[in-house]
């Protein structure tokens, strides 16, 4: 297995409340890893440690290592904006930035000064909108407010926006939970298409979605990793009693 993200002895607290306990896992490169577990088990917290979003919570504390390509992203000399550029996030609800559709996609490339001229931006905006499967729907209204899109379209716009800064990893925090079934299907399809180019980590609370997407599974309970491994093994032959109960829908 080609490891992309490796987590060593990771602990996290909100204030005094422990949220993650002794996490040791590996996320394989260019596959979809699904983190699952009952609500409140620390899935989202774990995900947020990968792009250093946990520190945005007042009073959140963290110890241990998160190695991306072997480098600990919590080292003091690490530039947090660089981390977040290379580890993209698709949030639970789409939040289009208060600007046009075009500028939403161009924003990230712009702040990181990734293109040299207007033509470069134009081509990339088109490319990533196509990649997110949104181009055909919005090409005629690129300069209208992004808030005018439907919520499903907004989520695909957020996907395009995230891909445009050329990340290595896509994190998805229940990225379809706010969407209608058709839009969800759209996003899932995109994620499957993109997995050959990006390492993907998805948090979900629906077992069926986990089964549709996962190459690799991490099952969490009460802030701990109970079981992790290739999807086929975990789903068909869980090693732990808790995992089995969860898969059978007992809690």
């Amino acid at each position: 297995m080609n490891t992309h993200i490796q987590v060593n002895n990771l602990n996290a607290w909100y204030g005094k409340q422990p949220a993650l306990k002794e996490i040791n896992i590996e996320i394989p490169k260019n596959q979809i890893t699904v983190i699952m577990g009952p609500s409140g088990c620390g899935k989202t917290t774990l995900l947020k440690t990968f792009n250093r979003f946990l520190e945005l919570n007042d009073g959140a504390k963290i110890t241990g290592e998160v190695l991306v390509n072997g480098q600990d992203i919590y080292q003091p000399d690490v530039d947090v904006t660089e981390v977040r550029k290379r580890i993209g996030l698709l949030a639970q609800r789409p939040y289009p930035l208060p600007m046009s559709i075009y500028d939403n996609v161009a924003y990230g490339m712009n702040i990181h000064r990734m293109k040299k001229d207007r033509l470069g931006y134009k081509a990339s905006v088109k490319h990533y909108l196509e990649l997110a499967g949104l181009w055909d729907e919005v090409q005629k209204r690129l300069h209208e407010p992004a808030t005018g899109l439907s919520i499903g379209q907004q989520q695909r716009l957020c996907l395009a926006r995230g891909l445009a800064v050329e990340p290595e990893v896509i994190l998805g925090d229940e990225p379809t939970s706010a969407l209608d079934p058709i839009s969800s299907q759209h996003i899932e399809k995109k994620l499957l298409e993109l997995k050959s180019q990006y390492t993907t980590v998805i948090v979900t609370h629906t077992l069926r979605q986990a089964k549709r997407l996962a190459d690799h599974v991490i099952f969490m309970y009460m802030g701990e990793v109970v079981e992790a491994g290739p999807a086929r093994n975990v789903f068909t032959n869980p090693q732990q009693e808790r995992t089995r109960q969860y898969l059978e829908g007992l809690f």
Binding site: D77, D79, E82
Partner: peptide, 17 residues
């Protein structure tokens, strides 16, 4: 080789400043 997560490009350095 994978670049380090440090502000090494001029653009990143000036943004950080």
């Amino acid at each position: 080789p994978i670049p380090l997560f440090s502000p090494i490009t001029p653009a990143a350095v000036s943004r950080r400043r």
